[in-house]
Structure formats: structure tokens, C-alpha cells
Nucleic acid binder design. Structure first.
Length: 501
RNA sequence: GGCGGAAUAGCCAAGUGGUAAGGCAGAGGUCUGCAAAACCUCUAUGCUCCAGUUCGAAUCUGGAUUCCGCCUCCA
């Protein structure tokens, strides 16, 4: 498959270093707070990559680390008067809960910085021995950036350009302003580990170099865009200087989730945690929303976008439900399907797979899903066609293909009726619909219709409509759902039912 | 200042030289007591603007405008 490589700024074929096996290392989170939807996007992108590669028959080892000792964790612990380990533990648990909810597969290996102290210290020592790092009198260890000639090869910057930037302030003990910390001497009250340089703790970048070391060279190293510099650049310098081995063959970076075209950040106050979102929408809605865009483009989070995602999900699941019902038939006829349907179905062929192979083009892959849905609905709505053996075969093929889609995207895999019910409940809660009242009106309307009192029946339907409830009359009786969205009137957008906070 | 990314219909979004996927919304039709859902048809002579290369450009080149990211912790 083709993947865009940040290092070469071009797409390239993924060729596993060890045939049949793929080793991926993705930078995880620093566990000092709940994950936001940007973390969700990153996790989702690499989750889908893993799923796709596994379906292709590759033996994937997915490694995602936790940074579980860091200034922010210590600060949080201090301000809440808790133990820093407990803070880290709390948010690791929260990470798992949130990611499980979103259907993100657990990584095969989840190394934590605190569990690799000896590896980290060893690496620092090796670098010092090779003259590529140095310890200072106060017990810090710095990487000597000038010792690594290729520094800047990932982010395509030269050291001199970086020095021209005004924000680089030379640390007192640094030999060069660009040198970065591998090991930091502990300040009073901070957690520390014993080391040849005294009590201290690791710098951020070295932990990833130490933890990814068992799998060098990695086939894929991934993370968010913002990690390109300095984090990944520094990882490359440390690993390649120390181990005399390329760190990774391919670098993948996902773009951000934005709010109003701006990066989410705490300082801007436009921060949405996964839990905020899941208070108003189903996890699968967030998953669909984030995967409906190509991973290298920024995506703007909006309630409207989430509503669109709901509609799309409902369309697919309703088709899945109808397919299931259609397939329950006992007798089948020999009627042939129209030629254009069979032709279109055949043309769909490997479209989904090809889109996924093309730098994980999930947006296009979903286009193929909707093309299948359209064809199935077409067969399903025609009484003659839906009784044909050929229709049975097509619908069965659809279910089979959707199973593949589910395995790869982690979408559309639930029991359709159950999903639709959960979706309705979710939307009822969001719009504060009184379900008991709805059922009451519905019962009254059924009575009116039975008596052919259409005036009364229509009045009840209007009343329901005012509550955002749409009634459908089917041969099996009434069903109902929520009006998908309240159309923005001339007086502006409808009051938003979404107030996740 | 340095480096990079993005501008495609009312909205979201694919498309990386061969004549604009898909979803939502909208119009008409079929179905329906009337609706809804579903299906069918239609909906960007044009992809921010200006030049250029080419038989052919949303796609390549040069320039302009606007927006965004990184250069400090950050998915």
C-alpha cells in the first residue's frame, strides 16, 4: 500500500523490513488529563491503519507508549495534593476507557517511561561514551545536536535556520543553544531515579528512543503533526546516533482537529474531551465523523458535522436492517437483476480496498460504502427484484463486504436494530424528547387511523412533528424517529441542542 | 523571520494531467388516505485570483490573495 512519508514528503510503497511483519510505534499521550478529540483522531487513524494492514495478512505489532512522568503530571499532582503515580494511573485508565468506547483496538505493547528507566539511562550513557551527549555539573545530560550531521532531516530544517529563530534561549549549561535534555536533575520534591549523574528523571524525547529500540528499524513511526519537531526529530538524532540504525522507514503524521479553523488548545478554551462529546453523541458518530476525512487534512469539529455523521450512519444502518429483513425470505425466484445493477455492483469490486491502500483514503472508501447502500436500497425497494435469487446473492455479498468494512473502519458492525434504537435514544436525550408522551400520541394516532379519522391522525402527527418526531407508516404499523435536524429558519439557526461541556 | 500545509456547490468532502466520488440540504417524479423513509431524475460549463506549460490542468510551473500549523509543552 502507498503511504505518505513525512520524511520524503512523498507517497511511498510500504515494504516491511521483515517480510510479512510490520512494526509500528505511535506516540501516545502524556497522562495528566482526559483525552480530547484530537487524541481520538490520532488514535483512530493508526487504529484503522493497523486494522487494514492486518486484513492484508500482515502480522502487525503496534506499540503505543504512555509518558507517565513529566512536569505536567507532577504539577497536576501537586495542585491536587495527590501522588503523581496516582495521577498517571488515573489518566491511563481514562485513556483506555475512552479509546475502548471509540472502538480503538488496544496496542500490542504499551510501554511506560517509568518502566524503562534502566533502558533510558543506558542509552544516555552510550551517547555520552560516544561523545554525542554530555553531563553538566548540576546533573543534567544534554544531546550534542552538532554531533548528528543529519539533524533536521525529518522536519527539513537546518540548524542555522533554527538558530535564526528568536525564541531559542541558551540554557546556562548547554554547550549549544540547540542541544536538548536527555536527563534532568531532580528538583526538590520531584520524583527521581538514581543515575550516574545523580538523582533525576528522563527528558521527554529519550523515552521514545529507549522504548522503540527493541524493534529497530521500525516500519512506521507515527503521531500528530506537532510532534514532527522537535520530538520526532530528536528521537531520530538519539536513536540513530546511538544505535547506528535507522529509526523508522516511514513517518506518518495526522493533521489536527480544529474548532473554528483553529487548533484546539486550553489557552483558547476551545477544548473538547472525548467525554464531552460522548455525553451528546454515540461513540460511533464521533468515529464516523473523524474517519470521514482524509487524515492529513485538518478537520473542523462542529455540532452540525456530527449531525451529518449521524444521518450518514442512520442511512447505512437502515439499509443493513432492510437487508437483513429482505434476506429472511424463504422462497426465491429466478428473476434476473437489471444489467446496470449487476454491472455497477461488479464495478464497485475492490474500490474500498484500493481507497484504503491509497494512503488510507477513508473518505473515498466510505464513498464506496454509500454506493453499495444505494444499489441495495434499489433492489430492496422493488418487490419483484427483492425476491430474486440474484438479489439474495447480492445482498449476501453486501453483508459480507460490510463485514470487511467493519473490520477495517470499526464502523457499521453493530446489530442494526439495536444500533438504530440506541441512536434514537441518544438523540431523544439530546433533544430532551419525552418518549412516554410520544408513545401516548402514537397510540392515539394508531386508533384514529384504524377508524380512518385522518383529520385527527394528521393533527396528532403535526403535534409529534412539533416535538421533532417524525412518524412513518409502514405495512407493519407506525414507526417513528426524530427529525434529523431542525432546519435553520430565516431567523437564524435552530437553537443548538448540543451543549457539551 | 525560517519551514510547511490548505483554498472544490448552500454545508461537509474525494479527486495528484484525460473532462468534477460520496454524504447532508434543495427541486421534480414514483410510492402513500396525506406524509415520512426508500428509489428515479435534476442541482459546480466549473475547482480563490492572474499568467504560463500541454492536444488536454482542480491537478504541473510562476506570481498574488486569504486562512492555518510548526519553529516553546502539545495528537
Amino acid at each position: 500500500m502507498q503511504l505518505y512519508n513525512t520524511a520524503s514528503r512523498a507517497r511511498q510503497e510500504l515494504v516491511p523490513v521483515r517480510p510479512g511483519k510490520v512494526y509500528m510505534y505511535v506516540c501516545g499521550v502524556t497522562v495528566y488529563d482526559l483525552c480530547h478529540i484530537g487524541h481520538a483522531r490520532s488514535a483512530l487513524v493508526f487504529d484503522v491503519l493497523v486494522r487494514h494492514l492486518r486484513r492484508k495478512g500482515l502480522d502487525v505489532t503496534m506499540v503505543r507508549n504512555f509518558t507517565d512522568v513529566d512536569d505536567k503530571i507532577i504539577n497536576r499532582a501537586n495542585s491536587e495534593n495527590r501522588d503523581w503515580k496516582e495521577v498517571a494511573e488515573t489518566y491511563i485508565r481514562a485513556f483506555h476507557e475512552d479509546m475502548d468506547a471509540l472502538g480503538v483496538l488496544r496496542a500490542d505493547v504499551e510501554p511506560r517511561a517509568t518502566e524503562h528507566m534502566q533502558d533510558i539511562i543506558n542509552m544516555c550513557e552510550e551517547l555520552i561514551r560516544q561523545g554525542k551527549a554530555y553531563a553538566t555539573p548540576s546533573g543534567d545530560v544534554y544531546f550534542r545536536v552538532r554531533s548528528f550531521a543529519q539533524y533536521g532531516k525529518l522536519s527539513h530544517r537546518s540548524l542555522d535556520d533554527m538558530l535564526a529563530g528568536a525564541r531559542v534561549v541558551p540554557g546556562e549549561e548547554k554547550q549549544d543553544p540547540m542541544d536538548f535534555a536527555l536527563w534532568k536533575a531532580a528538583k526538590p520534591g520531584e520524583p527521581f531515579w538514581e543515575s550516574p549523574w545523580g538523582q533525576g528523571r528522563p527528558g521527554w524525547h529519550i523515552e521514545c528512543s529507549a522504548m522503540s529500540r527493541p524493534w529497530l528499524p521500525l516500519d512506521i513511526h507515527g503521531g500528530g503533526m506537532d510532534l514532527i519537531f522537535p520530538h520526532h526529530e530528536n528521537e531520530i538524532a538519539q536513536t540513530e546516533a546511538c544505535c547506528d540504525c535507522e529509526l523508522a522507514k516511514l513517518w506518518m503524521h495526522n493533521a489536527f482537529v480544529q474548532i473554528n479553523s483553529e487548533k484546539m488548545s486550553k489557552s483558547l478554551g476551545n477544548f473538547k474531551t472525548i467525554r464531552d462529546i460522548l455525553a451528546s453523541w454515540l461513540p460511533e458518530t464521533l468515529r464516523y465523523f473523524l474517519l470521514s476525512k482524509q487524515y492529513r487534512s485538518p478537520v473542523d469539529f462542529t455540532p452540525e458535522g456530527m449531525d451529518d455523521a449521524e444521518r450518514a450512519l442512520i442511512r447505512v444502518y437502515e439499509c443493513l436492517e432492510q437487508t437483513k429483513a429482505g434476506l429472511a425470505r424463504a422462497k426465491w425466484k429466478k428473476t434476473a437483476l437489471p444489467e446496470d445493477i449487476t454491472r455497477e455492483w461488479a464495478a464497485l469490486g475492490r474500490g474500498f480496498d484500493e481507497a484504503m491502500d491509497d494512503d488510507l483514503n477513508t473518505a473515498m472508501a466510505m464513498g464506496h460504502v454509500f454506493s453499495m447502500v444505494r444499489i441495495c436500497n434499489r433492489v430492496l425497494e422493488d418487490k419483484t427484484l427483492k425476491a430474486a435469487e440474484a438479489a439474495r446473492d447480492l445482498l449476501t455479498d453486501f453483508q459480507k463486504r460490510m463485514q470487511v468494512v467493519c473490520e477495517e473502519l470499526g464502523l457499521f458492525g453493530q446489530e442494526p436494530a439495536a444500533f438504530l434504537a440506541a441512536m434514537r435514544d441518544c438523540r431523544c436525550a439530546r433533544l430532551a424528547i419525552d418518549v412516554a408522551r410520544v408513545e401516548e400520541l402514537l397510540a392515539a394516532r394508531a386508533e384514529a387511523r384504524a377508524a380512518k379519522d385522518f383529520a385527527a391522525s394528521d393533527a396528532l402527527r403535526d403535534e409529534l412533528k412539533a416535538m421533532h418526531v417524525e412518524v412513518r407508516d409502514t405495512p407493519q404499523g407506525q414507526t417513528w424517529d426524530l427529525l434529523i435536524a431542525v432546519a435553520p429558519g430565516p431567523q437564524g439557526p435552530a437553537p443548538s441542542p448540543h451543549e457539551p461541556s
